[in-house]
Amino acid sequence: MAARLAEEWFAICGGCEVTILDIGEPLLDLLEKVQIVHMPVLMDHKLYGQTGEKAEMEIPEAEVGLISGGIRSDEHKLLAQEMRRKCKTLIALGSCACYGGVPALANLCSTEELLTKVYRESVTTDRNGFPHEEIPALTDRVYAVSEVVKIDLMLPGCPTTPEMVAGALNALLEGRPFTLSTKSVCDECPTIREKKATSTLRRRLEGPTFTPGAPLNQMRCLMEQGFLCNGPATRSGCGGSEGTPRCIRAYMPCEGCFGPISEKANPMVDMMGALSTIGLDPKQIPDRAATFNRFSGAGRLRPAPKR
């Protein structure tokens, strides 16, 4: 019997859902093994009953639950709890679900500031009141799903990778363990390390030095070339079976989308410490908090104190 699968999406762009689609051919095999019972992106499943007759939101029971997106509203919170109740195994899909993702950058300011900015101060917006009717109230900040309910497995990445999603689901269905790497992106990065000392950062637009067509293990570490790279503080795995990290393959430094290597890790502090040691003036780094926590702002970003 096919395993039942439920999927919910919260504060998210929908990219991780596309990733499921991107699994490609293996998806066909996978679909044979699962029965999708709830997935708003695919089907219009009414939460309050088909006629809206129920007082509480309800999701069908499932063996596997997927949640993409962080928690931004009271409704997300309730839905997450409902998913937890109904799903045997709950998976956080993508960095938004795992760490808050890009939406969690909003945690740099208070909800009130956020609303003011969006609905009042934005030049492209008419100065109206805040929306208030029929809309679930925003939470005080963006939460990772694991901050609200227990999560059994995290599949980080922005978006996460098709290979990982398929791998995780297959492992789950076949009763095999599935674990994330505890290594950093550098572990999989083939570039050459010569001398870290860097005093100035270069802009992304400038582009690194490399020989087109030559293997990446002949290119010098992008950080050593002056491009701020989050590799050392970012979990590896984006490269999948091929190994080489995704951004590096594109001659770009790691953005950190796979999030920190461990729950306890503090990528900003770790990177700032390392960068200042090799001689980089820490003041050079623009928008530190957002740069190092671009995908992991839930619980790591907070509004600057009022002085």
């Binding site: 550098c186 572990d187 390390r193 870290k196 590799g231 090799i278």
Partner: peptide
């Protein structure tokens, strides 16, 4: 060993 990924930040300092 299980933590070091060879980022080489420590080498020059």
């Amino acid at each position: 060993v299980e933590n070091c990924d060879g980022c080489a930040y420590c080498v020059d300092p």
